[in-house]
Design a protein around this nucleic acid. Structure first.
Lengths: 236, 236
DNA sequence: CTGAAACACTGATCTAAGTTATATTTTCTT
DNA sequence: AAGAAAATATAACTTAGATCAGTGTTTCAG
């Protein structure tokens, strides 16, 4: 692995974001020498539900969806991983098989880090450990929030919540609209909030008709954030 | 705090289980000197949704439920914490306010550990850090599994899953039945699988009629685990 | 021991959202 | 550029499970 190349951790696009953000250059280049850089084309899978994890993936560019398929073939997107995030750590850290499939939603750049090595890095660098703990805690919060939403809110409210969370994670303010820089199919959005394809489409139409959102081809815009918050019926 | 007393970490009932299980005696007694021992009676709350976390709770005895209340007052049990587990760490580690309320389900014994101190312990003891990571990962797995169940399975299947998971966490084999050593109301069980009180009762009756479960007062027994697995329609 | 809550159960409606079906548009493939 | 495949959209129909209403049964405080 060439030093200071485009694919080195020292020059990584997402160097300032992830669990390694507090490491200094020598430590980074140590990791750099132990990782395996890889690219995935849209639609390719990084790992498949039910298989054994061998390490973690550090995503430097592109979005990846984590999909859990049920016994009857129904799919649910449990999480979306974007540039700067890690992936595959949950299964690794509890020695479970992967309980979901990771699929590239666009062309992505990802580094693979072997189990043994990442555990060593965590043991030797408390700051990395704390970042992993922080990441897991935040994801866990998101998961438990979704859990209660699924029980307590109807589809309209959950859709509003989804749009708000997409705004937070993938939104960019352009003029006076929020542009969502993540292309999702209706099907995918539906599985994110636990509803059927057709039901989701109905409510998306309702949101469009109400002037809350707008669409330009596949790109989504949020026009009226305030109204979205109303519709989401958020707690406290 | 007296040394070697009933309430010291060295003599803690759940010493072999929690995140501190790999520490040696001097390290344990160091923690012991920094914790605050407390007891809670059934129904008392340890902390309330929306408040700021100041540390973590280390549960040595008793079960505690974590309940998230929605904007319309509807409650959902997001997790149950039992002896040996920690509590309140999720919010603490991501600097969020508590997003749920912790309520003792029976008389409990709990130690409080201050934020600053627990962070120091984690930084200085990689084994503690790894145990915290492992704990979070397992809880996160459970949360994401529930999430997809809520989308992919009907109430009957989810109830079967709940009973199986109660068996795993609180079950004791007595004769040829599994005794569930956790007393739950129907209401509580309902909020655990995201359904209504009445609906849950209906299916519990169905399970009893089918000879899968049995009840002696408030205590629950699983008679036919095999059939329960069938009804749960588990994946792979 | 007693009266009031809290809990458990049952039945009768009602409705949100799933399902099925079909048409139209967009996006890939060759 | 044409044809196939995937995604979007709408409407009609069905249903799982929520809600409402009422009765029996524990539990527990005083």
């Amino acid at each position: 692995m060439k030093k200071n190349g485009r694919t080195s951790c020292e020059n990584c696009e997402s160097r300032s974001e992830g669990i390694f953000c507090d490491l200094n250059l020598p430590e980074l280049s140590n990791i750099s020498e132990h990782k395996i850089f890889n690219t995935f084309k849209k639609g390719q899978t990084l790992f498949v539900q039910g298989t054994h994890p061998f390490g973690i993936y550090c995503v430097s560019k592109g979005n990846i969806k984590l999909t859990k398929t049920g016994p009857d073939g129904k799919e649910t997107i449990v999480r979306i991983i974007h540039g700067g995030d890690i992936l595959g750590h949950r299964s690794l850290f509890c020695d479970d098989d992967h309980m979901a499939t990771a699929t590239a939603m666009e062309d992505t750049e990802v580094c693979f880090i072997d189990k043994k090595f990442i555990l060593k890095v965590i043991e030797e660098n408390p700051t990395v450990a704390l970042h992993v703990i922080n990441k897991l805690s935040r994801d866990m919060g998101a998961a438990e929030k979704k859990l209660s939403s699924l029980h307590q809110k109807n589809v309209r409210e959950r859709l509003a919540e989804l749009l708000l969370s997409l705004k937070a994670t993938h939104g960019v303010k352009v003029d006076n609209r929020w542009k969502i820089e993540l292309k999702l199919t209706r099907e995918e959005m539906a599985t994110m909030i636990g509803t059927a394809n057709e039901t989701l489409i109905r409510f998306m139409t309702e949101f469009k008709d109400a002037g809350i959102i707008e669409q330009d081809g596949k790109i989504l815009f949020i026009k009226d954030e305030k109204e979205l918050v109303n519709w989401a019926n958020l707690d406290y």
